[in-house]
Write a protein that binds this DNA or RNA. Sequence first.
DNA 1: TAAAAATATTTGTATATACAAATAAAAACA
DNA 2: TGTTTTTATTTGTATATACAAATATTTTTA
Lengths: 140, 140
Amino acid sequence: MKTSESRYCKCMYFSANALARKIEKLAVDSWKMIDLSPSHAYLLMAVISEPGIQPGGLADELQLTPSTITRLIEKLEEKKLVVRTTDGKLTNVYPTPKAKELQPKMKECSARFYENYAGILGREESYKLVESINKLADKL
Amino acid sequence: MKTSESRYCKCMYFSANALARKIEKLAVDSWKMIDLSPSHAYLLMAVISEPGIQPGGLADELQLTPSTITRLIEKLEEKKLVVRTTDGKLTNVYPTPKAKELQPKMKECSARFYENYAGILGREESYKLVESINKLADKL
DNA sequence: TAAAAATATTTGTATATACAAATAAAAACA
DNA sequence: TGTTTTTATTTGTATATACAAATATTTTTA
């Protein structure tokens, strides 16, 4: 059944979740090549572009809770893609050389993901939709 | 930080998930009064409006996987809100009288949830956004 | 009609995420 | 300066969801 054919398609709860699940699938596919989930990949990209960034900053930037950030970092640490140093109550997260090597492939995955949905929706329309979604998210 | 201020706000993965998480929170709040999560509540409403509906039908209608539906039903069964009967390979799910008594309150929660986000976004705009979200979800 | 294929559901397991509590350090204050 | 409050992070635990495999039944087909 299409999302728009469901009895519940008028409800934002239903629609927002259905979209998120479908986008998640597409993203997982697009990122499979580097064996990272999209969340781990975005976190890693954030660490690469801002080495030393703290968990709190990552939580803010990625709109996830600090505890979720800790869990994501743990996994990237296991994979030797980031290291943590602590300085008093602060923690700094740095990318490893292995992570930096991965960067071009990550850009590729990111671009492929974009092509996937923009190809379906059209660039203009995708852009507008992301804008309205952000606008709502900001207000909530 | 606002969603639209994040470095990643141009990405549908980021935005769709950020929106879903915020909407989830709002929904959990709106449904707290009857002590059901939004998913359980939507499933229960579907069962009430179509008594005897099967897990497969629920999966289709709610855009969740069959295994998720089984898990949701299990919890509603524990709470004595639905019963399952099996007939060969088919399973039928029925609401209990206790569930039917809950119906007016569920409608209230549902309405309150709608007021919450439509109050923030405006009715017209909410409607349009849900439409575009569904349109994208359909294509994916 | 017996075997094979398809279908519906459940179960085992894994994941991402969050909340609340715990910990630890820094800042404010009296 | 010693105490209180605030801040940053992690840990324990719970939840929703999915995938893959298992199970059970029905339908198709040879």
